[in-house]
Amino acid sequence: MVKSYAIALAFVFASPALAASIDGTWKVDVKSAQLPSKPTSYLVKDGTYHCSCVPPTTIPSDGKFHKLTDRPYYDEMAVTIVDARSLKSVMRKNGKVVSELTRTVSADGKTATTSFVDRTATNGTAVTGRSVMRRVGAAPKGAHAFSGAWVETNDADVSDSGLTVTFGTKGDMVTFKSLQGAAYTAKLNGPQAPVTGDPGWTGVRLKGTPTSFVETDLLGTEVMSVMTLVLAPNGKSLRIKTEDKKRGTTTSYTAYKM
């Protein structure tokens, strides 16, 4: 009887941990984000827009569309100077508008707010919202107010379509799907698996366990990012760290089970 009671008691205390699973729908908490400190620089002057983005972008700021290469989500961009403190950028792919951003610098010049609509998802789902950047480098003399160096802050509002994902596990198989249509089914510690529904992400490799694994994301044969996902013991939160290999930056945030 004593032995049976001890076994039952051990099961009671172990079962919450055993029950914890990544299975389900998760929503990222934007306010939990720890964002990169590496700035992005912009220069809007003498009829030209330049961004130190990856890859770098330099086009006329004349409101007309200009061809760009090596970008999976868009192939044309137009930049319009709205006024002394605002810029509008519009991106197209195959002649269709897929993204719009309006950036407005505050009166004191210390922050810039971006309002955006992103329709790059192959399933047509739009992501909308606003974000705030903090100035870390002054605008050169004679340049537009948005010129200078900026870092992103976690002062942001993003629609659920850009924050919500679903995971499922069965044995050593993991399935993933986003509201924007990206999806995969991959074997833990197995070979590379295909990703569908995202032109900027075509392959994935997983290494670890169903509750703590490293996801390597590829575009063709090139590693784009490495993501580490660790499930909390209570199964209610998921800590995620993403290393952007193209930009050399790291972002961390928490997602909560819905």
Rank of each mutant, 00 (worst) to 15 (best):
M1S: 13
M1T: 13
K3Y: 10
S4F: 05
S4I: 13
Y5Q: 10
A6H: 12
A6E: 12
I7S: 10
A8G: 09
A10R: 00
A10F: 08
F11W: 12
V12N: 04
F13S: 15
S15H: 06
S15I: 10
S15L: 13
A17Y: 09
A17S: 12
A17L: 14
A17N: 01
A17F: 15
L18V: 12
A19H: 07
G24P: 02
G24I: 07
T25A: 06
W26T: 06
V28S: 11
D29T: 04
K31F: 06
S37V: 12
K38T: 15
L43E: 10
V44G: 03
T48V: 11
Y49H: 09
S52Q: 07
T58F: 05
T58C: 03
P60N: 01
P60C: 03
G63C: 06
H66W: 15
K67R: 14
L68P: 06
R71P: 05
Y74W: 14
M77R: 10
T80P: 01
I81A: 02
D83G: 00
A84R: 01
K88C: 01
K88T: 14
S89P: 01
V90T: 13
V90C: 07
K93W: 10
S99P: 01
E100Q: 11
R103E: 08
R103H: 06
R103A: 06
T104D: 02
S106D: 09
A107R: 04
A112F: 04
A112S: 11
T113N: 04
T113M: 11
T113H: 06
F116M: 10
V117W: 07
G124Y: 02
A126H: 08
T128I: 11
M133P: 08
M133E: 10
R135P: 00
V136Q: 03
V136L: 01
A139C: 04
K141I: 10
K141F: 04
G142K: 13
H144P: 01
A145D: 00
S147T: 00
S147P: 05
G148K: 07
G148H: 04
G148T: 04
A149E: 07
V151Q: 03
V151I: 14
D155M: 00
A156V: 11
A156K: 11
S159A: 11
S161Y: 05
L163I: 08
T164W: 06
T164H: 00
T166D: 15
G171K: 08
D172E: 11
T175V: 06
S178D: 14
G181K: 14
G181S: 13
A182G: 13
Y184G: 12
A193D: 09
A193H: 02
G197N: 03
G197C: 04
T202P: 04
R205E: 11
L206R: 12
T209W: 04
T209S: 11
S212F: 00
S212H: 10
S212A: 13
F213K: 04
V214L: 08
T216A: 13
D217M: 13
L219D: 12
G220E: 09
G220H: 01
E222W: 02
V226L: 06
M227E: 12
T228L: 05
L229M: 10
A232Q: 03
P233R: 05
S237Q: 15
I240K: 04
T242G: 00
E243G: 08
R247Y: 09
G248D: 02
T249W: 02
T251I: 02
S252V: 09
T254N: 00
T254C: 02
A255W: 01
Y256I: 11
